[in-house]
Design a protein around this nucleic acid. Structure first.
Lengths: 230, 230
DNA sequence: GGAGTTATGGTCATTGTGACTATATGATGG
DNA sequence: CCATCATATAGTCACAATGACCATAACTCC
């Protein structure tokens, strides 16, 4: 029965969070990697993942490796692509179903790190095991494309947020400055956020309004397939 | 060794072609299905596909089942999604990497049909085996979304074509009429087509120009992953 | 030659958006 | 308590993209 399928199935996850760049202090994208503790590519950094258990859903497996690696729960989780090139792994042919996830920034700051788990800035990654550099590149492209037409940016933020915080997310992802007034106009027109009526005090300037995401107006994110969150 | 992975890997393909609707004569989307010749779902219609050979690339497997089913070569082929829900197939857990393909309309008219292969209009499908109705719905959504921002419509056409033919493709996919003049303006501005200088004579009206696709200006189709065609 | 039919070239109003100007408002420090 | 600072928020203006239309071109068919 095994003869009809000589490939092994794995699930990996590209996990994004925002945190300040060590040097510039600006918000940038970071992602956690795990060190390979066995051949092939022993010692190299790789995406968190593992073999797919026969009794676990794909998204659940991605979510689990995310939790095991970072101790976090994803605020956004979506299938990215399935990589199955014959040469991508030495030895047995491995087909990897890859997911990508966004986690909340303040939680990511508390996330577990250790000898074998470390966060890296997305634009300065080391050489990764297997074809994982290519996978991260594709995930970055998807994130940057999707943040412009979809409403996923809030996944980096908490329950309520200011438009400046939301704009920070967009600027970090898109790597370009956005005009505050124009950004506000666009976001308000899209109807994706709701004014909570509250303000955020404490800063030495006019206190900004706090917004909440408008769940009722979710834009087309994945079409007929509902977004797999959690 | 098999214990670490109790799932079976399959590859299926959603194949689209355009042909005139039997009743209205208007161009509509059609797709070929194959009849199940074994359990489960014996006798029901299903997407063409099969188990993934351990020594074949994913896209190659999709392309092969496409050829075996229709005798055609795809003009466009792209991975759609990987479906692996636990309950999607009775018995052993099956994970299907699904591709979607576009084939040329005039070739599709000649495509093989038989007792176990038949073309169906995409909007009037029977109840399919497994979760294949859901898969087709998703593929249709992807096609309709992508035809608006990408340049895949020409995959339904031959080497040269008139703007009316290209517009027919868009109208059939999007299921709504498009203004000829506006369509022309948009397409010409996009720079995706090149005037061949030739005209198509024979019709009882002003002879339309023949265009060719501009390969040099390919828009972002799949980001870092090159489109897998052929 | 005239009618029929689609091709193709314009116009006009509306909308979305980048660039930019101006005002609002709380915190802070004298 | 007031001036200052820094960001929040409201407008303005010009321009690009686009849907709705109108007008003319150029073949075939009768």
């Amino acid at each position: 029965m095994t003869s009809k399928n000589q490939s092994t199935l794995a699930v990996s996850t590209v996990i994004f969070a925002l945190r300040p760049d060590e040097a510039s202090g600006l918000m940038t994208l970071w992602l956690p990697l795990v060190r390979r503790i066995r051949e092939p590519h022993l010692g190299q950094w790789a995406l968190p993942g593992g073999w797919l258990p026969g009794d676990e859903e794909l998204a659940a497996a991605a979510s689990r490796t995310l939790r095991e690696t970072t101790g976090l729960a994803p605020k956004y989780l979506e299938q990215l692509y399935t990589f199955g090139d014959l040469g991508r792994s030495p030895g047995n042919r491995v087909v990897s179903v890859v997911y990508w996830a966004l986690v909340q920034s303040d939680e990511a700051a508390l996330a577990a790190v250790g000898e074998n788990v470390q966060w890296f800035p997305a634009d300065r990654l080391p050489e990764l095991a297997f074809d994982h550099n290519r996978i991260v590149d594709y995930a970055l492209w998807r994130l940057r494309t999707k943040v412009e037409y979809s409403r996923i940016a809030h996944a980096f933020l908490g329950e309520t947020f200011t438009l400046a915080q939301l704009r920070d997310v967009h600027e970090a992802v898109l790597q370009k400055p956005l005009d505050p007034a124009n950004f506000r106009r666009t976001v308000e027109a899209s109807g994706t956020v709701v004014d909570t009526g509250q303000h955020l005090a404490g800063a030495r300037h006019r206190p900004p309004r706090l917004y909440r995401y408008n769940d009722s107006s979710r834009l087309a994110d994945q079409g007929p397939l509902g977004p797999s969150i959690g």
